[in-house]
């Protein structure tokens, strides 16, 4: 994608963000009464984050093995209510360690 095109892409994405952030505050005074629509919107964030994360996460580091370790560490730590910083950094650290160990073992 050319730089110019990407600038257009960023501007269009910014327009979408502004649309969602500002428009409802200005134009809708009532609530969404439709239960189905409400439920749908409530589940969208989880569905999006999950489908963005899996399976791409397994290709996010230099090997599937190290990524798998990172995923496991992230799931366990967040299950036990660690903060996002701790989860992210520990997962990254475990990937780093596994990759170093693998390098050490294969050579």
């Amino acid at each position: 994608m050319s730089t110019m095109n990407f600038i257009f892409a960023v501007l269009s994405m910014a327009a979408v963000m502004i649309f969602f952030r500002v428009m409802p505050l200005l134009f809708f005074k009532g609530k969404i009464k439709n239960k189905f629509l409400n439920s749908f919107l409530a589940y969208v964030p989880y569905a999006v984050l999950t489908s963005m994360t899996f399976p791409e996460v397994f290709h996010s580091t230099s090997s599937v093995t190290s990524a798998t370790f990172g995923v496991i560490v992230a799931i366990v730590l967040s299950y036990f209510e660690q903060s996002l910083i701790v989860v992210a950094l520990s997962s990254t650290a475990s990937v780093f360690i596994v990759e170093q160990v693998m390098k050490f073992m294969t050579k």
Partner: peptide
Amino acid sequence: SALGIVLFAMFIGIIV
């Protein structure tokens, strides 16, 4: 290379 996972780990931290 290890930092490649950082955003995904954060997403997992948001979902779990």
